[in-house]
Design a protein around this nucleic acid. Structure first.
Length: 226
DNA sequence: GTCGTTTTCTGTGTTACTTCA
DNA sequence: CTTGAAGTAACACAGAAAACG
């Protein structure tokens, strides 16, 4: 299947026509429908040479032995990278390749096979490499979002704990006061931040709806409650 | 239309490699 | 020079969904 798609050449790229992640049905289409709506870097020999040069510059002497000297887009088996002694060879993407992938990811976090193939050709990468890159990128995004969510919930939790502590203290203070000297409802009317829990009664904003609550309390006191 | 099988794609977890402090 | 942490490419596997007979 990949081979079929690899034959699709001279495709113009355009993003956005299909409006996001194409339905899976279209993945199976043999029609070369590409919706990458922006020009990727111009394709040609110059680019190939440049990519290799940048790669070599980036890696320096250290990476000499690790660089895949074969063209990355060379159609070999997916396992060709770790064919030597079972060790996995890792190709560092060039800045240009990474930037292009990032740009596209910002627009669409998933690509259909034709898009992947076209992008792979543009970047001189294998279809599989583009696929893996998007997989990993999605995973990283999700991980970061989880961290952000976790941090947010942590702060919420701290806030609620503080609020709970404050309310407990307030309750303790109120209980400590002599109920006999002043009617409780008057004391309560002075408790500016008193709110009524939604499970007990309607939620009342501080200073705003205490009347109702106070009336209710007063009634219950008069009826022999508290 | 339903069912079982196959194919394809994606998410998740892990490993191996690179870079940098 | 060595080492550990962080980042990430590559991989394996499981599950979901679509395709097919």
């Amino acid at each position: 299947m990949e081979d079929d798609e690899a034959c699709i050449t001279s495709l113009s790229l355009g993003l956005g026509i299909m409006g996001g992640h194409a339905p899976k049905k279209e993945n199976k289409q043999k029609v070369p429908c590409l919706d990458l709506s922006f020009e990727l870097c111009p394709k040609g020999e110059e680019e190939e040479e440049e990519a290799i040069d940048v790669d070599q510059q980036q890696h320096g002497d250290k990476a000499k032995g690790l660089l895949c000297l074969k063209h990355p887009n060379d159609e070999t088996s997916p396992d060709s990278n770790n064919s030597n002694n079972g060790s996995r060879k890792k190709l560092k993407l060039t800045k240009e390749q990474s930037a292009t992938l990032e740009d596209i990811f910002k627009l669409h976090s998933s690509l259909n096979p034709a898009q992947k193939q076209a992008l792979a050709e543009q970047l001189n990468l294998k279809h599989r490499q583009v696929e893996v890159w998007f997989q990993n990128r999605r995973a990283r995004t999700k991980l970061k979002q989880t961290e952000v969510d976790c941090e947010f919930l942590k702060k919420c939790c701290e806030k609620l704990t503080d609020e709970n502590l404050r309310l407990k203290k307030e309750l303790q203070e109120l209980r400590a006061q002599k109920i006999g000297s002043t009617p409780l409802y008057i004391q309560l009317s002075k408790a500016t931040t008193l709110t009524i829990c939604s499970s007990c009664e309607k939620l009342l904003k501080p200073n705003e709806g205490n009347k109702g609550a106070i009336n209710k309390l007063q009634n219950s006191i008069e009826l022999g409650g508290i």
